[in-house]
């Protein structure tokens, strides 16, 4: 066990899919705020060192050639992004216990 400073804000920021991430560091290189460093272990997932400096633009998610990244909004944002299914009145939120199936409809546009 270590003496550790407290996390100062959002703790997670990014979830790396261990089965997909190959440690190519594309995300490290594209991040405008430079919040990550490469893992010292070759092929390991990058380390988010400055989580509180991430501004959640999602550039890293789009850059990842292996679709290995998920942007994890802070808990307070997950709690305030709430929706209600109009015909059932059921309430959902980002980060809910029992997730709905994904809505896979693509965005408008060719790109």
């Amino acid at each position: 066990m270590f003496s550790m400073p407290s996390q100062t804000g959002p703790c997670k920021v990014l979830e790396f899919d261990k089965n997909k991430c190959v440690g190519c560091n594309s995300c490290v290189n594209v991040c405008p705020c430079d919040v990550m460093i490469p893992n010292p272990e070759r092929g390991g997932e990058p380390i988010v060192v400055y989580a509180e400096e991430c501004w959640f633009c999602g550039g890293c998610v789009e850059e990842c050639p292996h679709d290995a990244l998920t942007l994890v909004p802070p808990a307070k944002q997950r709690l305030s992004t709430v929706w209600v299914r109009k015909d059932t009145g059921e309430e959902y939120r980002m980060g809910m216990k029992n997730p709905l199936p994904r809505n896979t409809r693509p965005p408008s546009g060719r790109t």
Binding site: L71, M94, R105, S108, G109
Partner: peptide, 26 residues
């Protein structure tokens, strides 16, 4: 889906969590 800071943090996150604008109210 195209506005700044929306494609991934809002559009993708909402739809990944199952939000469907044909059925859901924000």
């Amino acid at each position: 889906a195209h506005e700044g800071k929306c494609r991934v943090p809002i559009y993708k996150n909402l739809t990944d969590w199952g939000f469907d604008p044909a059925k859901d109210m924000l």
